[in-house]
């Protein structure tokens, strides 16, 4: 990615994020969003994050090229997240799984 393209991405990301955070505080301080819109917004985070996880894990290699240790680490990390509800555990156990399986295979 060229420096110009990266700067454009950074500027758009920064400005867009600021307006997402400030827009309703600045413009609609005394009005509420329709309940259906608020409920739909609550599902945006999980949907986007799940799509990103899969896309980053599989990448452009295709499903057939995904490594066994990667899938195992994702499953173990997922189970630990549900159990501990803590991202430190997710990272430590996920990476430990990769290192242990990598040493064994």
């Amino acid at each position: 990615m060229s420096t110009t393209a990266a700067l454009v991405a950074l500027a758009c990301g920064a400005i867009g994020t600021y307006f997402a955070r400030s827009g309703l505080i600045l413009l609609l301080a005394d009005r509420a969003l329709p309940a259906s819109v608020e409920r739909a917004l609550q599902n945006v985070g999980p949907a986007v994050l799940a799509a990103l996880t899969i896309n980053l894990a599989v990448g452009s290699r295709g499903l057939g090229e995904v490594e066994f240790i990667e899938v195992a680490a994702l499953i173990v990390a997922g189970l630990v997240t549900v159990w501990r509800r803590n991202l430190i555990w997710t990272f430590v156990v996920g990476m430990a799984t990769i290192w242990m399986l990598g040493a064994l295979t």
């Binding site: 999980p46 990390a77 996920g94 990476m95 990769i98």
Partner: peptide
Amino acid sequence: LAPPIMFAGLTL
């Protein structure tokens, strides 16, 4: 492989 693992955690 750390980013997909962190994203999986964030999703959950």
